[in-house]
Every structure is written in C-alpha cells, then in structure tokens.
C-alpha cells in the first residue's frame, strides 16, 4: 500500500501547520516524520488518517482519493501518543473492538474473533494480560496493546503519533527495537511521528525532516545525518557547532577575520558554518582554521567535552577523544574535519 500527499495546506487560525507538503511513501516502508513541536508532523499524520481535514491538497492511499472517505472508511491503523485505550474494556475487548464493530455482513463470528485477538496478543507478547484493564498496565504494555488493537482490523497502513513519547527512556529504547522487528515481520506501510532524532534514525527506513509546516529533507537516516540539506536539518539532527560567518571576496570570515576554509561556490553574504562536535580536531596552537582557549573539560561517556573560547570571543563545545590531553587554560588549534556552510 502506498501513501501519497500532494501540496497539503492546513491552518489553525493564523498558524500555518502545513504549508505545501508533498510526500510519497512506498509500499512496506517505515517512514519517520521528524521535527520539533509545531512543525506540522502530527497534523500531517492526522490528515492521512482522516482525523483532520486539509484546507487544500490531495491525499491518496494506494492510489485512491482518501479525502473522499472518512476515518472510518480509510482502514487505517492509528496509534495515539497517550494510547487512547478504552478504559472500561479489558485488554481482550480493546483488541477485539475493531472486529466487533464491523458491519454484520463481514463480521467474524465469536470463535474467529477470539482466535484473531489471541494471535495479536501473541504478536505483541502480552497474551497473559488479556483479562486486565488498561489502568492495570504499564505505559509500555498499554502502547503495545494499542498497537495490537490498531492491527486487528488488518489496516492498509499504520500511523503512529509519537508512539513512545510518553514512556521513560529505557522502555522507549526497547520498544524502538521491538517496533522495527515487528515491522520486519508484518511489513505494513507505516509512518511514525517523533521529535526524537535518535528514534527516527534508529527505527526508520526513511526520515522526513519537517520544520514550520514544510518538509526540509527526505532521505535515508545516513543521508540526513551525513549530508543535511539545510541549516535547520544540520542544527536539528546530531549535535552541531553553529557559527555565524560572512562570505566575501572568496573567503569565509568569522568576526571579520578570514578563516582558512575553502569558499568555493558559496554565495556572498551572511552565512552559517556548521561542524559536528566530534569533527573538530584538536591540534597545537597555530594549526587549523581556529584557535581558542580551553575553559572547561568534562568527561562524557566515550569522549571528553571541552568548552573552548575562540580568539574572536565566541564559545563553542567540542568532543575530543578521551586520550587527547586537554587542560583548562591551554591554547589549542582546531581544524574542522568536515563542515558545511549554509547561506542565511
């Protein structure tokens, strides 16, 4: 099943939630919509599900015009951030709900419903909770039940709205792996919304980065991390050092002083220089494009994080290997191994 949206526009009052969004999702893909809050990712998901309606634009599910149908007819599985389980029903009845409300003509009989629910509970590995009520489950269990409930109707596509957003960090990591393997198993075309870049990069086949109602970049997790298409993407994904620079006369200038960086093909004017923290290589004073004084050093897992005040006065944070000797007060040279300059 494919999903295609064309030129979607949606405003809430004066706030533009979606500002001309085009997206194609191929059959069997697991796509992440990644962006800060207010970027329009949830609105996009809800429009695909039929829970919201666009001001203009088109939505096709498997080539059919989805906007001609309500949420009920679209046959879309939707998983909510806060689970939205029916609290007066047992886990079993929650999962069975989608099967029980089918029109009489196509409804399965009780025995078939029991078998199907059992299958789904096995799939999410929670068959032992069938008789409990949602309030008696942990957050992670609730979300797995919500997923089983959404899958019960054999949805054409599966949409997940910040599925792990309300869970604690450890459970979130487990469920991420689990979701990826589940998708591998059932292969239903899926879109999930997240503001957590790690989650998007780890789980998805393809990542769609959104900001202010527009799509900034679509690409594989490697693409968006290694070759960000815009200043926003570079700043949002991975930890970056961001420096305001001036491109003029074939040179890149920071605080008026030229840097030893190539300015080929760059448009003149105010620009932003982006370097990943771990791409700043530390050398002796005088080596590299920057020079600065170490202010503060802290060990941080496999790296040491140093606060360095550059000679122009700006302070940046870099990540250096633990074996590199850095002392507070040292003057060091810094050479960006890789960097990107974006106009604006």
């Amino acid at each position: 099943m494919t999903i295609e949206v064309r030129n979607l526009v949606k405003s809430f009052g004066s706030f533009k939630a979606l500002d001309g969004v085009d997206l194609k999702v191929d059959s069997g893909e697991l796509v992440a919509l990644l962006g800060p809050s207010g970027s329009g990712k949830t609105t996009l998901l809800r429009i695909v599900a039929g829970l919201d309606w666009p001001d203009s634009g088109e939505v096709f599910i498997n080539g059919e015009d989805a906007l001609a149908q309500g949420a009920r007819e679209r046959h879309v599985g939707f998983v909510f951030q806060h689970y939205a389980l029916f609290r007066h029903m047992t886990v079993f009845e929650n999962v069975a709900f989608g099967l029980r409300v089918q029109p009489r003509a196509v409804r399965k009989d009780e025995a078939a419903i029991r078998i199907r629910v059992k299958e789904l509970l096995d799939l999410v590995q929670l068959d032992w909770l069938a008789d409990r009520y949602p309030s008696q489950l942990s957050g992670g269990q609730r979300q797995r039940i919500a997923l089983a409930r959404a899958l019960a109707i054999e949805p054409r596509i599966l949409l997940l709205d910040e599925p792990f957003g309300a869970l604690d960090a450890k459970v979130r990591k487990e469920l991420r792996k689990w979701l990826r393997s589940l998708h591998h198993e059932i292969h239903v075309t899926s879109i999930f919304v997240t503001h957590d870049q790690e989650e998007a990069l780890e789980v998805a086949n393809r990542v769609v980065v959104m900001d202010k109602g527009r799509i900034e970049q679509i690409g594989s997790p490697d693409d968006v991390y290694e070759s960000p298409a815009s200043a926003f993407v570079h700043g949002f994904i991975g930890e970056s050092i961001e420096l305001p620079v001036q491109v003029e006369g074939g040179a890149v200038r920071l605080d008026g002083r030229p840097l030893a960086l190539a300015a080929d093909g760059l448009a003149p004017g105010a620009s932003k220089l982006f370097v990943r923290r771990h791409d700043m290589l530390v050398g002796p004073p005088g080596s590299g494009a920057f020079e600065g004084a170490v202010r503060h050093v802290r060990n941080f897992g496999p790296v040491q994080r140093a606060e360095v005040t550059l000679s122009g006065g700006k302070t940046i944070e870099i990540d250096a290997p633990r074996d590199k000797e850095l002392r507070v007060g040292d003057t060091i040279g810094l050479e960006p191994r890789r960097y990107r300059i974006f106009a604006g």
Partner: peptide, 13 residues
C-alpha cells in the same frame, strides 16, 4: 479524552 472517540472511529466504529 476525545482521542478515544477518534480511536473508535479509526477502528471502523
């Protein structure tokens, strides 16, 4: 939560 109505709707109710 109004979301439970949306959930019921998307499940075909």
């Amino acid at each position: 939560d109004p979301e439970i109505e949306e959930a019921a709707g998307s499940l075909g109710a």
